[in-house]
């Protein structure tokens, strides 16, 4: 009896990525940050910080992450805040949810792009639970918050058992779904510098398929103008999301725009440059084209917004 095609004998492999009941774990709900840090220091890689849980619990159901300990920080009321001081800028605590950020009057007024980015995350139910800090730590290539924070030149306050340090948002992401936090570290706050006069920021995105969906291309632009008469671009930061392994800055486009006149023709060329800087994997042709379209549209909106602010 001939075996027709004998390729190779395969032992059960390629497991189907099935959702499962969550494994047992030990649960702590500290009420102070120092308690949380001490627990982290004790359990190290066996523990995960649990805030909104919208990414973490899915990861645990898929058995992608299997923490033996969850440290629920939601009882640390001191971490739930959104504070603005004209001299210092904006400070967002680790427990601020996407919903609270989207509904914050001060963010709506001064940092609208953060509201736009937050509203793009998941569904309402997800936004009511998920935190911006959690979203950053998840480090998804298609995260909406990261390009916006990059454009805003945000910093993160990181605590560990030794003390605290400030980390630049651009250094924070190591790779897709990987950040630089060590196993005993926790972010307590996002710090966003005050914006110069004659500046504005915008976040635009296109979803993958339906309206409320993962982001296919995300563009965040924060730009400032020298003065209303010469319309010279004093400074611009362009954050791009979902078009490279980690959210990135379109530095070449930024360089081209800075010191130049803020107008249609330069926006067109800057958009063109930005689209060459990214490296999307799937739907690459379409994504590059959309970077171009969205960067141009964002720059135009920023200019309009600055002009209207008089």
């Amino acid at each position: 009896m001939l075996t027709i095609i004998y390729l190779f004998l395969s032992i059960e492999s390629v497991p189907l990525n099935m959702l499962r009941a969550i494994k047992d774990f030990e649960y702590f709900a500290p009420s102070t940050l120092s308690e949380a840090i001490s627990l982290l220091g004790h359990y190290k890689h066996n523990a995960k910080i649990f805030a909104g849980g919208t990414d973490l619990l899915i990861g645990m159901k898929k058995r992608d992450v299997n923490p033996q300990v969850l440290i629920d920080i939601k009882n640390i009321s001191k971490l739930d805040y959104i504070r603005y001081k004209r001299s210092e800028g904006l400070k967002i605590g680790a427990l601020a949810t996407h919903s609270s950020i989207a509904n914050s009057p001060i963010i709506s007024e001064k940092y609208k792009l953060l509201k736009q980015a937050s509203l793009s995350v998941g569904s309402l139910q997800t936004r009511n639970r998920g935190t911006m800090v959690g979203n950053i730590c998840n480090a998804s290539p298609s995260a909406d918050t990261l390009p916006a924070l990059i454009a805003l030149n945000a910093k993160l306050k990181v605590f560990n058992i030794e003390g605290k340090k400030i980390v630049n948002i651009e250094e924070f992401i190591k790779g897709p779904f990987r950040n630089i936090l060590k196993e005993n570290e926790i972010i307590s706050e996002i710090q966003i510098p005050k914006l110069p006069p004659l500046s504005s920021g915008v976040y635009l995105n296109l979803s993958k398929i339906t309206k409320e969906d993962e982001t296919l291309v995300g563009v965040a632009v924060v730009g400032s103008m020298e003065n209303m008469e010469n319309r010279i671009c004093k400074n611009v930061r362009i954050g791009l999301g979902s078009v490279s392994p980690i959210p990135m800055r379109a530095t070449k486009a930024e360089k081209y725009l800075t010191r130049g006149k803020m107008e249609d023709a330069s926006f067109e060329l800057a958009a063109e440059i930005a689209s060459t800087e990214c490296s999307p994997r799937s739907r690459a042709e379409y994504r590059r084209e959309m970077v171009k379209i969205l960067v141009k549209r964002s720059l135009t909106l920023v200019l309009d917004s600055i002009l209207c602010s008089r």
Binding site: T3, I4, I5, Y6, L7, F8, L9, S10, I11, E12, P15, M18, R20, A21
Partner: peptide, 16 residues
């Protein structure tokens, strides 16, 4: 039940 199916081992001979 979910845990148990992970413990079932299957040997296959692939066909195109």
């Amino acid at each position: 039940a979910e845990e148990a199916i992970e413990l079932i081992k299957v040997d296959y001979e692939q066909i195109t």
